[in-house]
Design a protein around this nucleic acid. Structure first.
Length: 408
DNA sequence: TCTGGGGTCCTAGGACCC
DNA sequence: TCTGGGGTCCTAGGACCC
């Protein structure tokens, strides 16, 4: 169906075809989907926002709202200063439509998008609710027809199907690897379609500021600039040994990616590694009963989510954020995986005790070291027969050795 | 950027084992 | 009693991403 192999052209790893699909201001687009009159209007979706109130933070702003100075993660009160609310009728000039986050609805729209993606590719890695990588090597080719690559045409097809079948806009980047495809999808948002064929990777990346590379945040960007590295091209020309010394594994990976090399395979979405719930107090508090009550609620929520996802956990932890923004984490591991809400509460309350008398602005509860019932490990029959030797601890030759950990 | 919530990966030191 | 090297697990913190 795809025309077979090109004569004289060897297929190499660098000739994979990876699409990165990035939904445009996804939450705002979802709001427009169910409220079509919002098309073309400035839309702000707020986390912790309630109709008519000033509290909460911006989760997503439409491009119209961004033009008015509304930024992601900004407090709603601040957003309202640059973009008054449409429902406040004294507003004069441009106004915004503010809506509270409705995750359930967004998840349902995302499920429709994912269905399209899985129909378009054999391997799909969902990174978040609004982002995914597709390996479409077997569905198209880098060959050019009339000056355009077939891969680009395929990416356009993916983007347009999402628009047509689900009704929300997306941007798509196509490249021979994940890292470049990701940058490409971001290059021309919204409704972008950026194609970077294998031969063009370096010339595409070279002029970009280092911040555009996935994995370079404010801290790394500052350090790189101090080294005289401003662009991806500078990074590609830097001394790899120096980068490794300064940034460890990450430095080595960044160097390779800046040079257009990224051989990570598009792996299908895996199981979560941890589950976590946190919430901030309206203002920092030292009220012990408020702290304990919050932790109890978070613990119950996390345990509940773990159960609903069929996960057991072996490590339970808390996060305590003290003003101004000092993050403390404490965790305790159990001898074996459990599904035990009461234990989550007990352990987290006990970990919280260390912070008695301290003022906190935010608390969190986390479970990690997850196992899944249908997964490969902890097959109950194997355990009881003493046949399972999957044990992660070195030396433990037979499952029997660890069985004792579970009773008592 | 007076800082919301849900995640991932990496690093470093200490405990403990052989 | 002191000393070596290799390995894993655990905890805490940091950077980053959406």
């Amino acid at each position: 169906m795809d025309g077979g192999t090109l004569p004289g052209v060897e297929s190499t790893a660098e000739e994979r075809i990876v699409c990165h699909v990035d939904m445009d201001c996804f939450y705002a687009s979802c709001e427009r989907l169910r409220e079509p009159s919002l098309a073309g209007e400035a839309v702000v979706v707020g986390m912790g926002y309630e109709d008519g109130e000033p509290h909460g933070a911006v989760a997503t702003a439409s491009y119209e709202a961004r033009e008015r100075g509304v930024e992601s993660a900004q407090p709603i009160s601040q957003a309202l200063e640059s973009l008054p609310r449409a429902s406040d009728d004294d507003a004069d000039g441009p106004v915004g439509h503010y809506r509270p986050v409705d995750m359930e609805f967004y998840e349902s729209v995302a499920a429709e998008v994912k269905a399209v993606l899985h129909d378009c590719a054999d391997v799909v890695r969902e990174v978040s609710i609004d982002e995914a990588y597709l390996d479409v090597t077997d569905r198209t080719a880098w060959r050019e027809v009339d000056g355009r690559t077939l891969a680009g045409g395929y990416a356009r097809h993916v983007r347009d199907r999402i628009r047509r079948e689900v009704g929300v806009p997306a941007s798509v980047g196509v490249a021979p690897n994940m890292s470049t495809a990701k940058i490409a999808s971001d290059y021309d948002k919204p409704r972008g379609l950026v194609v970077v064929p294998p031969g063009d990777v370096r010339s595409f990346l070279d002029p970009l500021p280092v911040e555009r590379l996935h994995g370079v945040g404010p801290v790394t960007a500052r350090e790189l600039r101090e080294m005289g590295v401003d662009t991806a091209g500078d990074l590609a020309d830097a001394d790899p040994a120096t980068l490794r010394d300064r940034f460890g594994k990450r430095g080595a990976a960044l160097y390779r990616r800046a040079r257009g090399h990224d051989d990570r395979a598009v792996e299908p979405t895996g199981r979560p590694k941890s589950l976590n719930r946190e919430s901030a107090f309206p203002s920092p508090t030292e009220d012990e009963s408020a702290k304990r009550e919050t932790v109890r609620t978070l613990a119950a929520d996390v345990a509940d989510r773990a159960r609903s996802r069929g996960a057991t956990y072996r490590t339970i932890g808390v996060k305590v954020v003290e003003p101004p923004f000092d993050v403390n984490t404490r965790a305790r591991s159990l001898p074996g995986p459990v599904d035990d809400p009461d234990l989550v509460e007990e352990v987290t309350l006990s970990l919280l005790e260390e912070f008695d008398g301290r003022t906190v602005r935010k608390l969190g509860v986390r479970v990690s070291n997850l196992s899944f019932a249908d997964g490969e490990q902890s097959d109950l029959e194997g355990w009881t027969r003493g046949e399972t030797s999957e044990s992660s601890g070195g030396g433990g030759r037979h499952g029997q050795a660890r069985l004792g950990d579970f009773d008592g």
